[in-house]
Design a protein around this nucleic acid. Structure first.
Lengths: 244, 244
DNA sequence: AAATAATGTGTTAGATTTACACATTAAATT
DNA sequence: AATTTAATGTGTAAATCTAACACATTATTT
């Protein structure tokens, strides 16, 4: 009991799962979230230390069992809210992982999501030192099949950001084009030409020029921009058929 | 009992589901497959008549509950094999649908796949007249949330085929470029320029010229080609990072 | 034998992507 | 205060990819 109350991951309900799954024909279902953030010019992912002794010391994704009276998407949303305190979260379902022996406690099928959050807003809420923001470059050897889940979600993000301007979910409301480009370069792990990058983005016509400049930067300040959600929503409608 | 033995869909286990789901914390899980075929120059989808009285007369996707001792992908594969008798099936997981009230029998979350099969091979196996190949253009008002699932899977196929040469799974081993183009035009619901289409495909270097001609066509016969799976697998490796 | 309807190929214009160079500005240094 | 530095901000040319388009060829049909 005491043990269980301290656990707040997929692992939380292992004892429960083990007894229940084995005695019924139903299958236990969980959600696992790959939570991306962007800080210090690096793409980060929020991980939690696994409590399961088989995976002692390993890191794992944030997840939980789905409640029977809860929409699947709501379930993912709830996990994020509980963990980050944020409710303006970009969330995308990626894949469902269902190998028989993927979870040591028994049959658990998990639906993987990735989410993009503004790490500056969130930063203060990590009181729990079992939680940590990792550089995506250093993410290896996660618990369970979470490495595979992470890899899949990261690839999906890389692909998506080439098709949709998702990056704004990771940046503060006001940002410079350099910050935006740094974000793209971090996510895609490439270098891009500054001039072509600007040209491309301006041609998309999704940025509002705020007529403000960066403050407190150790070099010539750049202009600040804001993402124009209205225009994006309009444009998105004309993409239907190509999307998804 | 007699009723249940006649049902072979998701609906099959409604009675079972209803009693079990409500009495446990577990969630029932099913797989639904959008099975695409290509015949008479039209893209088709295999549907089954719903037996549920709420959806009497409506068509639905092929699906079944996932067995507790079965990998998720295997489960989808099994459903296809049982239905089509084929085992060289292209299968892709698309999305998991988990709204609380999506299924009238209780909480059932379903994992949607689409598959591509060679309808000529399969054609003979439809003894069951509850099964029918529908033109994708005429697919409306399916049972449950199957219309949404179908739409999602169809869009995914449309997108995928622009990135990967999946069409071969829908064609006989030997095919002409006109047949290939007809397939693309059916899937994407567009007309394409014949000359540009050929150029594009030849430049991909995935077709083996069989030095054979079409037989029994009411016009000048075209050359026959075969898809080169080896070359495709090689090329696919160089795409990693962009894929998924 | 002529007409038909398809296959098979090449060229040109347009759009998009990539490569690359120079002037400008504010901070940091001397 | 003047100079250096390191970033921002803009424009142009080459290369690649995509789209539009025309004519000769071949087997079938008339």
């Amino acid at each position: 009991m005491e043990l269980e109350s301290k656990l707040s991951q997929s692992e939380k309900s292992i004892l429960t799962i083990q007894s229940e799954v084995q005695n019924t024909n139903r299958i236990a279902l969980s959600v696992d979230c790959v939570i991306f953030g962007f800080d210090e010019n690096k793409l980060k992912v929020l991980l939690i230390r696994s409590d399961l002794k088989k995976y002692k010391g390993k890191w794992s994704l944030l997840g939980d069992l789905i409640k029977p009276a809860e929409d699947l998407d709501k379930s993912a949303y709830r996990i994020l809210q509980q963990r980050t305190g944020l409710d303006d979260i970009y969330l995308e379902q990626v894949h469902t992982f269902g190998e028989i022996k993927r979870h040591p406690a028994g049959r658990v099928i998990t639906v993987a999501y990735y989410s993009l959050i503004n790490i500056q807003h969130h930063k203060l809420k990590i009181y729990d030192n079992e939680l940590h923001w990792h550089d995506v470059k250093n993410v290896t050897d996660l618990a369970f099949d979470h490495q595979e889940i992470f890899d899949t979600c990261y690839k999906r993000l890389q692909k998506r950001i080439l098709e949709h301007p998702l990056g704004f979910n990771l940046l503060p409301k006001k940002f410079s084009l350099r910050e935006l480009q740094n974000l793209y370069e971090s996510i895609l792990d490439t270098k891009m030409d500054r001039r072509n990058f600007r040209k491309k983005f301006f041609s998309m016509d999704l940025l509002t020029d705020l007529n403000e400049m960066e403050q407190d930067v150790p070099h010539r300040p750049g202009k600040l921009y804001q993402f124009n959600f209205k225009k994006y929503e309009k444009k998105k409608k004309t993409w239907i058929g190509i999307d998804f």
